[in-house]
Amino acid sequence: MSLFPAVGRKQFRTRLSWYTVVAFLWLGVVLHLLPFYLMMVISITPASEAMSMPPKLWPSQPTLAAWRLVLNLSEVAKSVLAQPLSRYFLNSLIMTFGTMALSIPVTSLAAYAVSKLIKGRAAKNLFIFFIGTLMLPGIVSLIPSFLLTRNFPFPLPVAPHIPGTDIPFPTLRLWNTYWAVIVPAGFSAGNFLLFKGFFDGIPDSIINAARVDGGSEFNIFRRIILPMSIPVYAVVAYFQFGATWDSYLWPLVVIQDSKIAPLTVAIRSITDAFNYAGTTNPMTAFGASAQMNELLRQGLSWNGLMVLGLLQALPVFLFFIIAREYLLKGVKIQGLK
């Protein structure tokens, strides 16, 4: 409440612009909610009318059949889902929190250093070093990265022999462990940008004052910068949670054991089989739909996919709510000043 004048709020013009702003914001809210609403509605629509165009605003006979089917999917369709949903859920949580626990400290410390500690040409070069990888579409380095998880540090399918011997170089295999998802995400260039932007906004004077008081750089960071930065940590944690939770292709190639596979791999494989069936090429469509026949026989349809989509999105909602609380802590800090 800083922009609208503290006095004269009752004036017609002020009130009019106030309500314009409110109306605009609520309009955005409604437009944001429509896709969710659509998703909910489709999930309770009987399979026969689930894919009709235009979508119905409310199904003629709402049913929870799809919800029931999906929640018991691992029992009714073991071939579709090898483990119970809860297992995948847990795996996703482990990978997501593991990634966050590694990546957020590593990334934020680097961003802080580049923003505040290191100056001049070194800072510029580091900046490019840290964000340069964002500029190449990730898909082209998929195969080399994958090979690294097989035989670190060699991006090769088989480790080379130590010259002059029959013994292969010792290598590190992350592949098919949780680490294969967590370790490569140890530094996030995107989050680096977010952190650096925020730290750049903190006046140098605060840090210099603390230096005068004789704090070590790390203590300055921990005692002064960190409390000020809770909102940005909340935001980045939330982005990181969403990104890792939703990542699909990478876990798909580095994890094959269904006991440690994440939820996306389980769900997206199903939804992809469904979506690939809708392609231009009859051969493609046919191929993918071979698997679909099994899903259809189990009664899975668009409504079931929406249930899966909602289940997949649920933890991100929850985490968002948690992150929001921390984000709002910033408001209190603002009030203190």
């Binding site: 590593v106 340069g132 080399p144 990265s145 690294l148 670190f152 540090p153 530094f187 260039a189």
Partner: peptide, 10 residues
């Protein structure tokens, strides 16, 4: 991390 999992595969 950026060296081994960012630049190296790239």
């Amino acid at each position: 991390f950026q060296f081994f999992w960012g630049w190296y595969p790239m």
